[in-house]
């Protein structure tokens, strides 16, 4: 069996040969992965396709694509608004998959959403069609480890990696259980709360990162509340990957593609240790 695209990407990053060759790989500087999040269909379906392509061109290592859901209870105002705009623009699960297929990105795409749109589409059909569209992983916000073994089994039997979220409140017992069924990478929520920009990186992040690292060898991404290149750089000192969502959406919504590109390039430079 060939190497999973997500694992292959991490191997390349760890070898210090991220996208575009080895020029950034030398020395002791940490080279972490940039993982932007975009809501599919935001700000419009057409602009969304351009935004997906832009993320790769600006130097990101992975992309999380959000399937909009009417009740995004883990999301703050920015992603709530982007989700509503996408739904108002007619975005549906089939259209998200079509968008991912048309973008035909060279970096691995992780689909991030809530469980219900996936169940409504049909779970087995979803994992098959998402894979066919080019997606490499699935992250479900309201699907903690152990919530539904039947769903877990279907995803694990598919080519999609099941990305697990971990939180500062995750107990040692739950951590054990979550990492057992995880693949691709682990996603540590940096703080209690919903998605959205915050002033600073939480002081206890290093402690939580250490806890997760002791439980698993999987690469570790950190997200929620990371919005500026400075915050991304600080987070990259601890984690293997840095997820930035609301700040990119905000830039895209207010300043269009050029503003999003500027931010993405600055973030990429920050996490790549340039």
């Amino acid at each position: 069996m060939s190497e999973h695209p997500i694992a292959a990407r991490w191997r390349a990053i760890r070898a210090g040969a991220g996208r575009g060759g080895g020029e950034r790989g030398g020395g002791a500087r940490r080279h972490a992965a940039l993982i932007p999040y975009l809501t599919a269909g935001h700000p419009t379906p057409a602009a969304s396709l351009e935004a997906l392509k832009l993320v790769e061109a600006a130097g990101a290592d992975f992309l999380e694509v959000g399937v909009p859901f009417s009740d995004p209870l883990a999301d703050g105002p920015t992603i709530q608004r982007s989700t509503q705009a996408a739904l108002d623009g007619g975005m549906t699960v089939p259209r998200v998959l079509e968008l991912i297929g048309r973008a035909a990105l060279g970096i691995p795409v992780v689909i991030m959403t809530y469980l219900n749109p996936v169940l409504a589409y049909g779970l087995e059909r979803f994992v098959a069609d998402a894979h066919a569209a080019g997606a490499a992983g699935l992250l479900l916000t309201d699907f903690p480890a152990g919530a539904d073994p039947a769903v877990e089994q279907v995803v694990n039997a598919s080519p999609l990696a099941l990305i697990r979220l971990l939180a500062p409140t995750t107990t040692p017992e739950r951590l054990e259980r979550a990492v057992r069924g995880a693949s691709g990478f682990l996603y540590l929520i940096s703080r209690l709360g919903v998605t959205g920009a915050r002033d600073r990186v939480p002081p206890d992040l290093a402690e939580h990162v250490a806890r997760v690292r002791a439980a698993s060898d999987l690469p570790l991404a950190v997200g929620f509340g990371i919005s500026t290149p400075a915050q991304a750089r600080a987070t990259a000192q601890l984690a293997d990957g840095v997820v930035v969502g609301s700040a990119v959406i905000e830039a895209l919504g207010s300043g269009g593609l050029p503003a999003a590109e500027r931010l993405l390039r600055d973030l990429a430079a920050a996490v790549h240790g340039n």
Binding site: L73, F143, P144, T169, A178, I189, L192
Partner: peptide
């Protein structure tokens, strides 16, 4: 039924 919630809430539900 079940518990389909963000991971952050799981310890509180336990």
């Amino acid at each position: 039924g079940g518990r389909y919630v963000p991971e952050t809430l799981m310890s509180a539900l336990d």
